[in-house]
Design a protein around this nucleic acid. Structure first.
Length: 518
DNA sequence: GGACGGTGAAACTTCAGGTTGCCTC
DNA sequence: GAAGTTTCACCGTCC
């Protein structure tokens, strides 16, 4: 440990150290507990700074316009970037993340206030790593973070080819806290790594996969396989491991993903090692790589769907109630009544069997409804700012959720195929497209054109271009006025109506997209 | 007297992230 | 556990 001195002009240690880092011409990563606090800290540092530059203004502009309409988050980021400060967390768009990472590497950005995102994966060393708090909220209240996490964060300090040294700084509020940090983190050992196989969904997935690809065809072979894993090595209790595997096999059989073959056994020995074989559906589930429980749940819902009125919301709720989509959006105390009311209104569209209010699963069920409502707003063309205000979900998180949702809907589509629910397949395909582009059904034809996303498609539709025929019949200059000439030419070309670029109307009369938005 | 606006203290809420999974053009 | 947000009581001002 080395001692350094910084000005203590302000009463926030983080602020003082960050400003000092800039004063000595270095860069710092500030690790903060929550997204909101990361943003706020970045903003506080920004407020103390004066100088802007053209480069930084450009960056700010790019970050601001990363979406068709900037959200408050974009505005806040742009404000900070103008002074060479940024915040970074999973809620940013990937474009914004790239801007920040690239420009931190080239030195334009001096300080990034981030959540643990930047401790893992991204290789972004800095002269200083400032860690504001080593405690984090978990399900069991506030607790100290793992030593491994601390090592990841402090490991960002010091850039191999630029600095001879790096400084990792942890903020302690009291003397006793300082001692605790020294003992646990600076002088302590990292905790053991635990095998992830212990998580039941993971075990289910692997057991089914091993059987489906005929890698292991009997129970004993499965035992042998898992006996050699890190999981077994760590827990040593093979009997317990085996009984868990047996439980998983029973479940998979109940769900009709595997069968035990050969009914007339000639000896007890054979009974002991009966053959396991994946069913057709089981094979597909293994290929789809979803948790078998999720597949079972989806199949149950599809069965209910076949004699019920369904809607996009029905399927959105199904996939919102799976292990894979987690974390679901949480229903807050203030909105509890509202979500419950909406749920009751939509109740006839819900495919699963609803738990009663008094069951412990009810909370998760309501969370799934909220998550589905968010997706539903997205496919009804609400923008990111709306979703941020209404659901407290940020653009980057929306993107991540949409990806998983698409994968789950693909799985749902495939399962309906295997089960011959023809009418549902069509509905699901349509829903996947709507989810991908975030549009109402009426825009699905227009969206098929390249360079036409949800915003432009809506503009076209509002201008009475409802399908490809309308566009084919349209005059190029009209289209240019609406979308700009480049896009107009491009879509005409896609429809086999290639046009020459006319020099005189190249710039004149061109109305920007923004002018057409209300 | 009452509507309105500003202020600050108290009460109440909320709180990281990630990886691959699929298929297809 | 702490930061951030909302609520609410209180006070002064103006009409």
């Amino acid at each position: 440990m080395k001692s350094i001195k910084v000005d203590d002009e302000f009463d926030s240690a983080v602020l003082n150290i960050a400003l000092d880092t800039m004063k000595i011409g270095k860069q710092a990563l500030v690790f903060i507990n929550t997204k909101k606090s990361a943003e706020k800290t970045a903003e506080e540092i920004t407020k103390k700074l004066k100088n802007e530059s053209e480069v930084l203004n450009e960056l700010a502009d790019k970050a601001l316009n990363s979406l068709s309409r900037p959200t408050k988050q974009c505005e806040r980021l742009a404000y900070c970037l103008k002074k060479g400060i940024a915040f970074h967390h999973a809620g940013l768009t990937s474009e914004q993340k790239n801007i920040i990472e690239d420009n931190f590497r080239n030195g334009a950005i001096k300080i990034i206030c981030c959540t643990p995102t930047l401790a893992y994966g991204v290789d972004l060393p800095a002269f200083r790593a400032i860690i504001k708090d080593l405690r984090r909220y978990t399900q069991h209240g506030l607790s100290w973070i793992p030593v491994l996490d601390y090592m990841q964060m402090s490991g960002r300090a010091g850039r191999p080819n630029y600095d001879k040294e790096g400084q990792a700084i942890v903020i302690a509020l009291t003397k006793s806290e300082k001692e605790k940090i020294e003992e646990k983190y600076l002088n302590g050992l990292p905790e053991e790594i635990y095998s992830k196989l212990a998580v039941e969904p993971v075990l289910r997935t692997y057991v089914l996969s091993l059987i489906a690809v005929n890698f292991t065809t009997t129970k004993n072979q499965l035992f042998e396989f898992f006996d050699k894993t890190f999981y077994a090595h760590q827990f040593k209790d093979l009997r317990r491991l085996h009984s868990t595997i047996e439980k998983v096999i029973d479940l998979l059989e109940d769900w009709e993903f595997i069968m035990r073959s050969g009914e007339d056994f000639s000896s007890a020995n054979e009974l002991e090692d009966e053959k396991l074989k994946a069913t057709l559906i089981g094979k597909r589930v293994a290929e789809l790589y979803i948790d078998p429980y999720t597949a079972y749940f989806i199949i149950k819902c599809l069965r209910n769907a076949s004699d019920k009125r369904t809607d996009a919301f029905s399927f959105l709720q199904v996939i919102s109630h799976t292990f894979e989509i987690r974390p679901m959006l949480k229903v807050g105390v203030r909105e509890y009544d509202k979500i419950q009311e909406l749920m009751l209104e939509l109740s006839n569209l819900i495919l699963e069997e609803e738990p009663s209010m008094y069951e412990p699963e009810y909370e998760d069920f309501l969370n799934s409804v909220k998550t589905a409502l968010m997706f539903n707003n997205w496919i009804n063309e609400q923008d990111e700012e709306f979703l941020l205000e209404e659901y407290n979900i940020r653009p980057g998180e929306i993107r991540a959720k949409l990806d998983i949702a698409d994968w789950l809907l693909y799985a749902t589509e495939e399962l309906s195929r295997i089960m011959h629910y023809q009418s549902l397949i069509k509905e699901i395909i349509k829903l996947r497209l709507r989810l991908k582009y975030g549009v109402k059904e009426e825009l699905l034809t227009l969206i098929r054109l390249e360079n036409i996303g949800r915003v432009r498609a809506r503009i076209l539709f509002r201008n009475r271009f409802r399908d490809l025929k309308d566009i084919r019949n349209a005059d190029i200059s009209t289209l240019s006025q609406i979308l700009g000439e480049k896009i107009a030419l491009s879509i005409k070309k896609q429809l086999g109506q290639e046009q020459k670029e006319t020099p005189q109307n190249k710039r004149k009369g061109q109305i920007s997209l923004r002018d057409w938005e209300e």
